[in-house]
Amino acid sequence: MIVLTILVLVLGFVHFAVSTRSFYKVVFGKGFPSKAARNWLHLVGYGYLALGLWLCYQFRQDHVAILIWVGLLHLAAVLVAMMLTYAPALFKQSWRFGCLGRLGQKWLA
């Protein structure tokens, strides 16, 4: 359960990472995200984070869920940062297979 939550949060952060100039390149090889693409990615990213919060709420039905969520956000963010640095291929894979953000094709490429 926790692992699943972390995974969801990581994927959420992947969206945010892709929405930045430098990591957009990692995925698409060139170019930079348009304004619309950024908004779209952020939207989906927030969706993932919200889903993570909901998952946290499933194992703790009180305000501690929020705390766990914040704690896992820290962890997920660090994981994404490490992934970008040391395993960009994995980053690409997770974008390809885990991110609904890809559905917004028309804004992206």
């Binding site: 430098s22 990591f23 940062a81 490490m82 970008l84």
Partner: peptide
């Protein structure tokens, strides 16, 4: 927030 994930060893 733009540099959020940037890490250049």
């Amino acid at each position: 927030f733009a540099d959020f994930f940037t890490f250049r060893p």
